[in-house]
Structures are given as structure tokens and as C-alpha cells.
Design a protein around this nucleic acid. Structure first.
Lengths: 127, 127
DNA sequence: TGTCATTCAATGACGTGTCATATAAGTTGT
DNA sequence: ACAACTTATATGACACGTCATTGAATGACA
């Protein structure tokens, strides 16, 4: 009871939580106020932007983030409606969707990424 | 553009996110299925349980978690309704609330903490 | 080819977190 | 003792994530 290893484990976990919450909060607020997008929206843009291959991506993207399939679907939907991304059905498997940044999406991502990196630099390791 | 330090920063951030989401998810599911409480509920129980001093605590608790004041209020409300915690107004400052585990709360926390620590041990450093 | 199982994405019901605000109590200065 | 300000908690509107399910396309195999 109250084993020291347990205490250390709990401390470690709380430290991760703190870092995560504060950093995510800072990112959220900055992206929302300056670019009118949420953090999850940005993260999808970021993943699509750095994706080089032209595979059917919706699925693969899911493998690169801890987001749920359901969450991804909704975020992508919002991005689509905002005109930042386009969804095109895949020729070889019509269940899949191919994602692509629009020009607006690419432009916004370029700006937002600068802010994003700066905030990461500022926040990570701060707590 | 695509500076290597930026890449590293992003990697670090994603790693934190992954650890956070997977661990929190595992905790959530286990606590919910075995004890019918959410992770945030457990975290409040945990904080109250380890709190030694008899100060008016609602406020102080807020300083020990990244949770919002609003979120805390609602979580404590649920815990109260579930009969796991009791809120008593402070004599010296009637705005403040003094939190205390009920017997049921203490019993549940004792069991749940074992599960919680085990899952932390299993998950942290896994990703 | 027809059936059954599997996979990809979207959706609806629901819970919980956030922001802004309300309520109530305490504090300060006059 | 009265305003004006500050602090502690609660609450309502709203947004977003989750789970379970659906719809549609594919695969496997007799």
C-alpha cells in the first residue's frame, strides 16, 4: 500500500497528463483564434500534408493517429465543408477515400504549422 | 521548412499524444467496466484519498490537476450523487467546499487504485 | 455465381468537457 | 455600514468525441 514504485508511476502519469492538457489547450486556443480551426483539424491537415504517397488514405491516416475512426470521419467532414480538404473516392476500392489538401488547405496549413511548431517548442518540457 | 528540429518536436508531441490516448483509454474502459466510474471520477477520488490536511479542498484540488474548475465541479457532483464523496461547506469560508470520501468511496478507491496502478505499469513506456 | 463474412466510412444517440455566466460569500476602502 | 471588487462553486448552451450501428463494397469459397 502506497508502494514507492506506484507513487512514481502515478507521478509520471500526471506529468504526462499535465503536459498534454496544457500544450493541447495552448494549441487549441491559438489555432482557433488565429486560423479558426481546432487542434484535431490541424492534425489531420498536418498528416495529409506530410503524406507523400498517393494511396487511398483515410484508412492509413487512422493508423497514424490515436483518433477513432468515427472522430476522423467527423473531422474530415468538417474540413471538407470548410473547403480545406477534398475527399475523392478511390478507383480501385470504392469504399475508400482519397484525401487531398485544397489550395486553401495547403495555404492555411503552411501558416498554422509555423504557429504549431512554435507552441510545441514553447510548451514541451515546460511542465 | 521541414526543419529537422521541427520534425523531432512533432514526433515528441505525437508520442505524448499516443501514450496519453492509449493509456487514458485503457484506464477509462477498465474503470468503467469494473467499477462503473470514469477516469476523471477516479482521479478526483485519488486526489482526495491522498490528501492529508483537512483544509477546504475543492479549490486546492483544482491546483493539482489540469482539469477546469467547471469540469471539477461536475465530476464532484457526479461523485456526490453516486455516494462516493461528500461535500460539506467550510465553516470559515462558506463559499468553499470540504471534500471527503464516504466509506463506499474509500472502499471503491482502494480496489480501483490497484487496477489503475497495474494499467499504468502496463501502459507507460509501451508506446 | 450466390451466400456469408469482412472492411471502409458515415451517422445518431449520448456523455462529458469548455466557455461564459450566475450566485453567493468574502474583502476593501470610505 | 455601503458600495465595488474579488473569489469559490454551480450551471446552461454548445461542441466534440465515443460507442454502436448502418450502408455500401469487397473477398472468400463452395
Amino acid at each position: 500500500m502506497a508502494k514507492p514504485q506506484d507513487r512514481q508511476l502515478v507521478e509520471q502519469w500526471r506529468s504526462i497528463q499535465t503536459t498534454y492538457f496544457h500544450t493541447a489547450g495552448a494549441l487549441e486556443r491559438a489555432l482557433e483564434s488565429k486560423f479558426s480551426i481546432g487542434l484535431t483539424e490541424f492534425e489531420i491537415l498536418d498528416l495529409v500534408a506530410e503524406s507523400t504517397d498517393a494511396a487511398c488514405r483515410m484508412k492509413q491516416l487512422g493508423e497514424r493517429t490515436p483518433m477513432t475512426q468515427s472522430a476522423m470521419s467527423k473531422v474530415v467532414d468538417r474540413l471538407d465543408k470548410a473547403g480545406l480538404i477534398s475527399r475523392q473516392s478511390c478507383a480501385d476500392d470504392r469504399r475508400s477515400l482519397f484525401l487531398e489538401l485544397t489550395d486553401a488547405g495547403r495555404a492555411l496549413h503552411r501558416q498554422a504549422a509555423i504557429e504549431h511548431r512554435a507552441l510545441l517548442r514553447e510548451n514541451l518540457g515546460k511542465y
